[in-house]
Amino acid sequence: MRRQLAALLPDARPTSEGEGALELASSRVDAPRLISATVLEGSGPLRARRVFQAAVAGFRGFLDGTQRSLVAGYLAGGAPIVVGRAAAVIRERRNRRMHTWGAPLVEMRLYAPHGLATPTEWDALRQIAGHQLVDISAREGEIDGEHPLALRDAAFHRVQAHREALEQRLAERWCSTEHDRLFIDGGISGSDTVAVSSCTVGVVKSHRTLYAEGVALQTILGLGRSERSSVFEVTSPRRTTVASWYLRLRDPMGRDPMWGLVRVEIARPDPAERHAIGDRADEVSRWILAEASPLALPDARWDKMVYGIRDCEEFLRAVTQ
């Protein structure tokens, strides 16, 4: 890509080989938030519940995606040209071994601000990327948006959105052809199809946003191993409402309060089935607890990550590098 840019845009400033990925350098980090949520399970406030009975295998597929974005060069005006690669895969468990379900999705796009590029530069970029060229120009009136770092952040988020789109595409394919359960790394509310499917379970590892306040928050942070919170509702103006609960995969003794803590998302039950949401949460929790072994080490997030998701990441690392 750098060679192509150098050939077609001799005035562009190339970057060095060692320049880091935007995923590591992004200046945009979501601020921690606490959001209160409506409890769906029982009539009282959110509380801790023990997941009884043994963990049991319930998932057949595991879905995850990866992204990687790099600044390939700079336009003559100083705006960054970003190359972003997004990928997603479902790994299917057959006879205790992981295999690829269908075909993985791997796509690469080029990100640059149309407004800051000369017509010649834009034509050259289009010649390189064709339809995969994405404009990251600042919105009208957004003065800071022309800041090169802001443009890099914008590119980074576009790549992130691209990765989520690929994940959703695969998840929708699964839902349309399979009936077995799919473990999705991350939330499921981004896609209407996926969010209402009975075969998808989303598991969120990051907790920049916690759906509890006050006593409820203390209850969540105080969950013990194999304990879950009451089921609550996660709503968002741009996303489908889903049912969710927190689950502690590992003993947090001596660790930080979020050690081994995940948030589970499943489709919101019909009002008629709402009374059974607790049993459903227990069942799904047992499935997730069953995936706590083998450990996802040496990944740093091994306390929250299940092995099937690590396997997806390893697979995507192999096919995208």
Partner: peptide, 24 residues
């Protein structure tokens, strides 16, 4: 590291049945 496997089975070799997936 072999230690990771030990940790995965809580130091008990017979705990293999808890694992649903064989490592790559």
């Amino acid at each position: 590291s072999p230690l990771h496997d030990v940790m995965g089975f809580d130091g008990s070799p017979s705990a293999e049945s808890l694992s649903q997936t064989d490592r790559a």
